[in-house]
Structures are given as C-alpha cells and as structure tokens.
C-alpha cells in the first residue's frame, strides 16, 4: 500500500481526540482498518494523519446493566458473535454479524467503525437502528449522546465534529416477548456487499404491534428507519393487509439507486417483500 500520512498511536482517548482535532479534516481515526485502509489504498481517502485507536484501553467490551446494553466502540463484530448477552438481547445484531464480511474482517472490524464508515450497506446499522440505539460522541469539549437515527446527515456524512469519536453505543434491553430479526439480501451468501438489508424489531401487546421499528440498508444514501411503515403498524393488529400496506410504505419511502449489484427498482421491490416477510415472521413467532 502507498500513502503519505503520519501515524500516531495514542494511549489515551484524550490524546486521540487532541491529535484528531489538531489534524482537522485530513485526520482520520483508525479502528479495525477494514474500511479506512482500503480507501487509502484506492486513493478514495488521502489523509495526512491516521490516529490508530488500538492501544487505548477500555474501548472494547459489552456490558448489560440496568436494562441497558452498552458496547465499547472498539467491540468487534466477532465479539458480538461470541457474546451470550448479545445473543439473548439482540438476535438481529447476531444475524447481521454472522453474514458480515469474512472471519478476518469480523475479527478486527468494530461496531463504531461500521457506524462511522457511513456506508449505506453497513450491515450492523439496520439492526442497531431497530434496537433504537444511541451513540455517544466524545470530543475536546466533552461527550454528547444522540440517537443513531439522527447520526447521519447524508451520504457518508454524520454529526461528528472534527476530532469527535464514537465512544459508546447503547440501547435499552428490549422488552420480553419482543422480536428482532435481520435479513441480508446479497449476490452471494458469504462475504458480500448487501443489496438490501432489512431489520425489524417489534412486540405484540393484546394482539397489537408495539415498539415497531423497521430499518433498511443499501436503499438510501444512509441506513434509514422506515417511519411511515412503522407508523402504519404501531398499535395496529398485524393482519395481512396491514402488513402489506406497511411493506409497501417502506418500499415507497426509501430511495434506492442502480449500481453494479442491482437496480433501484429491484431493491425497492425487495424492501416490500422482505419487510412483509420479517414482520410476518415476527408476528408468527410472537
């Protein structure tokens, strides 16, 4: 690989933030490296400084406390797969982790990195959106927490100020009896970029849908919540016509494009198919 950058490997978060802030827009944080180094090699990214976060202690790990799951930003995709807590509280996240790239990438790619890379096809993001996850950002002036669904501002752009890092990802443990699932439609089963990703989270209370969250990947400039579809189901009985209307709404509110993997037309149709399928599965499971 060739690139003209300096590399700093700070030992503390404060040093990292300082180094990134000083570097401004041309400074890039490095976690697992599975996106950043690919982009540097292909000259899509030409940083002057790379700040490797790998030596900062305490950034990796999964805690469940007080009805809340919290991930350290450097928690890897493999960490998610190995965690009993995640298996118990976030099955959709496990499903997406299982089909996330290949083993070596899963061993290094981090949750924060997947969120921060801003790819519409970032596979962990739809399940996290469906869990109503929040991200904590830390910069020179301190920390702030915002909803993941408010994090993205456009294609590959987000709320982070220069120097700010994602320092935690958290979500409330879903209520008992709620259901979560993720489906990745791709051109092959293993190690593929997603054509359409759909995550659904919902519960059933007295025969009605509650806490409905539907998140979509690869069908808009950023991973997105299908709010209209959610609204059509929230508080309603999940009868087939209702589910079909919600699925159609999800297909209408996304904005997929044509690329080498599929056309926008196909993607839109698949959103409808998969949203209906996942909601139906949830209802049948519940």
């Amino acid at each position: 690989m060739y690139g003209e950058f300096d590399l700093t490997i700070p030992k503390t978060l404060q040093e990292a933030v300082k180094s990134l802030t000083a570097g401004g827009k041309r400074a890039v944080p490095l976690a697992g490296g599975t996106n950043v180094l690919v982009d540097v090699r292909s000259q899509r990214l030409a940083p002057e400084r790379i700040v490797d976060l790998g030596r900062i202690g305490g950034l990796r790990g999964i805690t469940v406390d007080g009805g809340r799951v919290t991930l350290g930003p450097r928690t890897t995709v493999s960490d998610l797969l190995a965690s009993e807590e995640i298996a118990a509280t976030a099955p959709a996240l496990v499903e997406s982790a299982r089909v996330f790239a290949g083993q070596m990438v899963r061993n290094t790619a981090t949750v924060a990195g997947n969120i921060a890379c801003g790819s519409p096809a970032a596979d962990l993001v739809p399940p996290l959106l469906a869990l109503d996850a929040e991200v904590t950002l830390t910069g020179t002036t301190g920390s702030r927490t915002l909803a993941l669904c408010d994090f993205y501002t456009g294609y590959k752009s987000d709320q982070r100020a220069p120097g700010e890092l994602i320092t935690a990802i958290g979500w409330p443990v879903p209520a008992k009896g709620s259901f979560g699932s993720f489906y990745k439609l791709a051109r092959r089963k293993g190690d593929a970029i997603t054509v359409v990703g759909v995550a659904v989270g919902l519960g059933l209370k007295g025969g009605r849908c509650v806490g409905v969250r539907i998140a979509l990947g690869s069908v808009a400039p950023t991973p997105m919540r299908a709010r209209k579809a959610e609204g059509l189901l929230e508080g309603e009985a999940p009868v087939p016509e209702r589910i079909a209307r919600a699925a159609l709404a999800a297909a209408q509110e996304c904005s997929p494009i044509d690329d080498v993997r599929a056309t926008g037309e196909y993607r839109r149709k698949m959103v409808e198919v998969l949203v209906a399928r996942l909601v139906n599965n949830a209802v049948q499971t519940g």
Binding site: G102, R187, R188, K189, G190, D191, A192, I193, V260
Partner: peptide, 26 residues
C-alpha cells in the same frame, strides 16, 4: 454470481468484493 460489468469498456467490477466467486458459504 460472477459478472464482469463494463460501462463503455470500463470495468466496473475490478475487485473480489464486486466480482463474486462462490465462497465457502455458497
């Protein structure tokens, strides 16, 4: 799964993440 896509002769799939041969899961 394998597709070489050209756009006016320009190869649009010049990597193993775009040109997809079957993996162990396939």
């Amino acid at each position: 799964t394998e597709e070489m896509l050209y756009k006016e002769g320009r190869l649009m799939t010049p990597s193993f993440s775009e040109y997809l041969m079957p993996t162990a899961m396939d």
